[in-house]
Design a protein around this nucleic acid. Structure first.
Lengths: 136, 136
DNA sequence: TTAGTTGCAAAGGCTTTGCACGCGC
DNA sequence: GCGCGTGCAAAGCCTTTGCAACTAA
């Protein structure tokens, strides 16, 4: 918990109440939130915080490499605070909820050199799709 | 080539010049295009075609299951006409180009039952990211 | 004929930006 | 105090939709 906040502080990132609240909200929940959901939760703790600041802040966390941006099929982007723990995602086609999963093995090694077409491949992401218990 | 068009005709899909041109453009190019790129290429062949029709037509092809929608990085969606050939994608982080790859094995089987959290998992997509020869 | 398709323009969802004020360091 | 961060509102990008005219079967 608040692992993210500690990482950000450790990098000497200028801290404000808005940034702290965004980091806490992101890290404190077990599901991956959209920017608007982050804003809604942030408002509970800091009523004056603006949507623009939430968007800007999330964007900076992504630039710093401390948060990963997940874009699922035309819906709003979701933000994943576990940027340093290798994992994959399970997405519900119904409600869009995203949950982390940890299958065995490294997907990167599954792509043989003759399938790389000269690309310098640096990461591999697996997205499993289906319906969550609530939507099934 | 124009495999897609044949599949669509085979399903008894009502054919119009707009739909034919969209299918030809999508299938005729080896990269996966955005809706706007499809529109630009379609205009070359049929100057009056509207953006709305291109969007609607692509959406219907996706609903029919003949085209797959790819959402990369929160930018515009791209459309993949090879919906029936199992494959994965190699994405260039520099220019955004997407190329199909065919690694061995079925990624779906890599997710053990105890990692499914009650979800009914129906598909798995792997996205390999890196830099293409031109951007490296 | 007639249900389904098109084009236009306007609206919609999500996100970014310009600018003046405010605050962390 | 300085420079970056914030809030507001407006603009931006991509996409969808309402409606009247049109057309494939």
């Amino acid at each position: 918990m608040s692992d993210l906040l500690q990482r950000l502080r450790g990098r000497g990132w200028r801290m404000t109440s808005q940034r702290r609240v965004v980091a806490e909200v992101l890290d404190g929940d077990h599901v991956h939130l959209t920017a608007d959901e982050v804003h809604a939760l942030a408002v509970d703790r800091l009523p004056e915080i603006s949507r623009a600041t939430v968007y800007n802040t999330l964007g900076e966390m992504v630039s710093l490499g401390e948060v990963t941006e997940l874009s699922t099929d035309g819906r709003a982007k979701r933000y994943d605070p576990n940027a340093h723990r290798p994992h994959q995602h399970l997405v519900c086609s119904g409600c869009g909820v995203i949950r982390d999963v940890h299958p065995a093995g490294d997907p990167l090694t599954d792509l043989p050199p003759d399938q790389r077409y000269g690309f310098t491949v640096s990461e591999a992401a697996i997205t499993y799709r289906g319906l969550c218990p609530g939507c099934a």
